[in-house]
């Protein structure tokens, strides 16, 4: 085991995870807002924000899927040591980490009509995260909001599954935003 595996977790887990959860929760409750997520220093290529989300929400009860890009020895060892989460196939995962193009969107659990909560949450690593781009409407949004999304069609299909569907957290360096399944996404036409 590398000593780097043991580093990079929360310094004070109860307080750091409480603060991190508030940032994640307000992002999920108000799609479009971008919050800071700090306190973890995971091994590359994981971003700080993705590390914070994993440390805050994952444990032995939550299987995690990693795309090939993130499925390195360092990342596996770090997640295993700090969270104890089992690393599994996409179909069995409650959480997943990957870049947008690599995530096998159709393989993840979307819940059942009686238990729509039994669905995966995808942590999508993005190169940039800005409050501009696609137009968002729905619960948590006063009027409309805008957020840079990797695409729009997949999120429109996901919303159409409601109350089933996937929930997304976008992470970029030490910032995050969220897109729950309720948010209606519209591409803004470039004139």
């Amino acid at each position: 085991m590398q000593t780097t595996t043991l580093m990079g977790g929360f310094v004070n887990a109860p307080l750091d995870s409480a603060r991190a959860f508030r940032q994640i929760m307000t992002a999920v409750a108000q799609p479009g807002i971008i919050n800071d997520a700090v306190g973890a220093t995971p091994p590359a290529p994981l971003s700080v924000a993705a590390g914070v989300v994993l440390l805050t929400l994952c444990d032995p009860d939550t299987p995690v899927f990693l795309t090939a890009e993130f499925d390195t020895d360092d990342v596996r060892a770090w997640i295993t040591f700090h969270t104890g989460a089992p690393l599994v196939d996409a179909a069995k995962a409650s959480f997943a980490v990957g870049s947008w193009g690599d995530l096998p969107i159709t393989d993840f659990a979307i819940g059942t009509s009686e238990y729509p909560d039994r669905s995966a949450t995808l942590i999508v690593e993005v190169a940039s995260l800005n409050p501009e781009g696609a137009e968002l409407r729905g619960p948590g949004i006063k009027g409309k909001a805008t957020l840079s999304l990797p695409e729009t069609a997949a999120f429109q299909q996901n919303t159409a599954l409601f109350p089933l569907g996937l929930d997304f957290v976008f992470t970029c360096q030490n910032r995050l935003a969220a897109l729950p399944r309720t948010t209606k996404v519209n591409a803004i036409k470039v004139s």
């Binding site: 805050t56 409650s94 949450t121 729950p180």
Partner: peptide, 26 residues
């Protein structure tokens, strides 16, 4: 422990809160 509950319990509750926010009223 901060806010009485152990960390694993809080994580479980936090995950439930996030799913609750994603499926309003469920």
């Amino acid at each position: 422990n901060f806010a009485y509950l152990d960390e694993q319990t809080k994580r479980m509750i936090r995950r439930a809160i996030l799913k609750g926010l994603a499926i309003p009223g469920y």
